[in-house]
Design a protein around this nucleic acid. Structure first.
Lengths: 341, 341
DNA sequence: GTGAAAGCGCTAACAA
DNA sequence: TTGTTAGCGCTTTCAC
């Protein structure tokens, strides 16, 4: 038996009605008699008819979908972002189309183009900052968009971010307050450390330290990375270099946990000889055996602001703009216990 | 200035050629003179023309996309699966469409229907087991599909899984080998514990214990859950109940880590008084301060097998079938150190 | 090497 | 309440 796609025409013929009537039968509350509708729906079901969304969209002009491009779906931050975006977008009657660039420029351009060609109504972007091309495409497409998480230097459009500058200076303030005097900064790996997220954290941290009377020049900046093992390595390297520090600010929790782990294994007493702050406030960071001080950013808030802005600019067709920054909250734990008096 | 979608007709008019020629200009190696092609491409670019993929697909009959539905994108297992699926599918020239059911029956049906209506060529499913309807839809649609991770009782189609029965019995074997004699099983919460993943683990574990001479009836089955805090709670409840155990097999690492954490905070010596095994082999489980024995499943392998099977059945149009099970590997760590002789 | 015409599956006017 | 007609944007014969 040969398998053929069944179309609205087939259903119409089978049910002895016009295509229009079939189409109408699938629309809630349309002018059609209940018996007819029921009969058509039954026929359609029996024939395994599924309306073709491409045909519908072509006819209608545009669909009801919103795109979201993230850099790294395996990163808990992004996973959470996907989750809340999906909920918000879905509850507003849209469909979310998810794609991942995997930090790769070519992939980012590719998925961006796919989104545009499938005529998403709006686009939520986490730029990887490795290429400007995708942004160029988005601008030329005229699709409403909003950047979250990161704002590349070339980007001028609407954005919703966490305030990295603030987090950096807060980290400095807190560490100094705890009595530290020889800080280090663990940033991302050489390939990504110039991304705005990390440079802003660095800038904020160093300026916070300066305010506290510490010469930024004296602060070792280690190109660690974003994973546990890289954090371990980086701490090992720092120790091998002979530089002595009494606190570390890491650009994410994983790296911080790695540093903590390595320090512990060397018998360093955490919260006394060494204080550590991370960013992300992972569930693990709260464990008693980890107890890492960290910054919690309001992800749901960020996503809500971004998604709602997007939906508004889609529905109002207003050229609104948005540039919001959300402050993260410092969650104090044992890795930065305060000096006893 | 009013914003209008620019179509192939606009480009054709502007470049003084027919629509056909424009269409051809976008196809590599088509019979068209280089100067013409160049001119058209330039015009198109200047006018910000993006071909409409819905129109193309409608004309062409079908697109080049494959769907993947996962239950929980924030779960590292699923995130990794998404990542590798994307890579494989993309490298075979297809586009991956990702959706999340969030363990919700209505959402699952909804996204499944969307996939079918957008005419994906194939579908990779993580069923939530809360509804049979989505499977019914898939079958009726006639779309090639493959289930991964989990196989609901009603499902009879192709599948690629990890062998939970095996993992369960291996866990039992290992714990007995370490010298344990009073095991407990921490399963999922009441709402999900009947899902096949968990019942298979339970079945395998209990039968493994029976083989080792332990009466399965005597084994406390605790409805813990899948998160750290639920693992903590569950251990606390177990202790409060007065039941004494010397080892726990948990259905995932998060739960196991919670149990470990709670036990440690009560001064229980891990690896001696209490041994714990989890499942998933999270990066955290390898930390010295956690050191949780766990099962590592070959996710990439699973995904590769599933995706390749799907691509084959799409391209060959053969009604192949596949029922593969991959065995997980036990990663021994300190949480199950062997008894000294 | 280029164009004209037909039609993919669907829905929204407009008629009946 | 139902049907007829036209056309969304694109590609693909087939003719020139």
């Amino acid at each position: 038996m040969e398998k053929k796609r069944v179309t609205i025409t087939d259903v119409a013929r089978e049910a002895q009605v016009s295509e229009t009537t079939v189409s109408l039968a699938f629309k809630e509350g349309s002018r059609i008699s209940e018996p007819t509708r029921k009969r058509i729906l039954e026929t359609a079901s029996r024939m395994s008819y599924f309306p073709d969304s491409a045909a519908r969209r072509l006819r209608f002009g545009s669909g009801k979908s919103i795109g979201l491009i993230v850099t790294d779906i395996t990163n808990p931050w992004h996973a959470t972002v996907v989750r809340s975006a999906d909920q918000i977008v879905r509850s507003s009657g849209y469909q979310l189309i998810i794609a991942e660039s995997n930090w790769d420029a070519a992939t980012e351009v590719d998925v961006t183009r796919n989104m545009i060609e499938s005529r998403v109504l709006g686009l939520i972007m986490c730029f990887s900052e490795t290429t400007e091309e995708s942004y160029l495409l988005i601008r030329r497409s005229g699709i409403p968009h909003v950047a979250i998480d990161t704002v590349p230097p070339f980007y001028k459009g609407p954005s919703v971010l966490s305030d990295h500058l603030y987090a950096g200076s807060e980290a400095a303030r807190h560490l100094l307050f705890c009595g530290c005097s020889r800080p280090a900064f663990f940033t991302s790996d050489p390939g990504t450390r110039r991304f705005s997220t990390f440079t802003l954290l660095e800038k904020g941290f160093l300026s916070g330290l300066r305010k506290g009377g510490i010469d930024p020049q004296s602060v070792p900046i280690i190109e660690a990375g974003l994973s546990i093992s890289q954090g371990q390595d980086a701490y090992a390297r720092l120790r091998a270099s002979g530089i002595e520090v009494d606190c570390i600010f890491c650009v994410n929790d994983l790296c911080a946990i790695g540093a903590l782990e390595e320090a512990k294994s060397r018998g360093v007493s955490i919260g006394e000889e060494l204080r550590v702050i991370g960013i992300d406030n992972l569930e693990f960071s709260a464990l008693e055996t980890v107890s890492l001080t960290s910054f919690a950013d309001p992800r749901q808030e960020i996503m809500k602001a971004a998604a709602n802005y997007l939906i508004e600019s889609i529905e109002d067709e207003e050229p609104l703009d948005i540039h919001r920054k959300f402050r993260s909250r410092l969650i104090e734990r044992k890795s930065t216990s305060r000096a006893a008096h």
